[in-house]
Amino acid sequence: MKAILAVMYREYKIRISSLTWLFYDLLMPFAYLLIFGIGFDRAFSTGIMLSGEFVTYNDFFLAGVLSMACFGIAINTSYGFFVDRDNGIFYEFLTYPMTRGQFLLGKITFNCATSLVQTLIAVLLGAWVLEIGIRWELLLFVLAAVVLGTSGWFFFLTIFALRIRRNDMFNTFINVAYFVLLFVSSLFYPIEPLPGWMQTVAYANPLTWHTDALRYFTIGLGDLSTIALELVGFVLFLLASFWLAVRSIQRLI
């Protein structure tokens, strides 16, 4: 436990060393909702037809923003491996009295805590300022899904951050992953109207599974049995990613 707390303490020290990070970590999802969400909400003023009912774009987009925030935090944290490698401290960490798993768990625990704070800010301000119809009774499930999403994406991206040695190659990988995973998913728009091949890719995309679950827990949209299946899929994705991330860190040098 001490080792995990030590990793969290270091993450905290690094985060508070920059106001930009503080803004990004805490307010980014709400800022996204406020600018991007309102823009689309006005453009599609009739709303979006989903499962036989109309929802405003802001209502629809809240889950997407939370899902994107989990992905964004995971990108930043996995990119931190490159910074630590450049600073030489990464290898020193590996000689500290902790297991590789504890090192990763410490990082993810801190980042999940950050995700939870930014989620609460986005949900509360979203309900208050943008009048999003939140299903408050499911708020705890929203928070659990955020923890799941942040962890899953962090472990997944860590595999690549540890295996790819070149910073520029990792940036390219992230850009491609961001483009494919975010735009071929249910994050920005519903999947149903998409062409067949795009639907197939989107349904196989863990980001869709995660976003759909968040959408159900935030505004109650979707079919519970499908959501349950998607959640099981995402948990398996998380476990496989964790296992591969630990293996990658063990084989690093």
Partner: peptide
């Protein structure tokens, strides 16, 4: 405890 050959530090702390 170890001092490695490469400099190892959190440069922004």
């Amino acid at each position: 405890c170890v001092v490695l050959q490469e400099n190892a530090a959190d440069l922004y702390l």
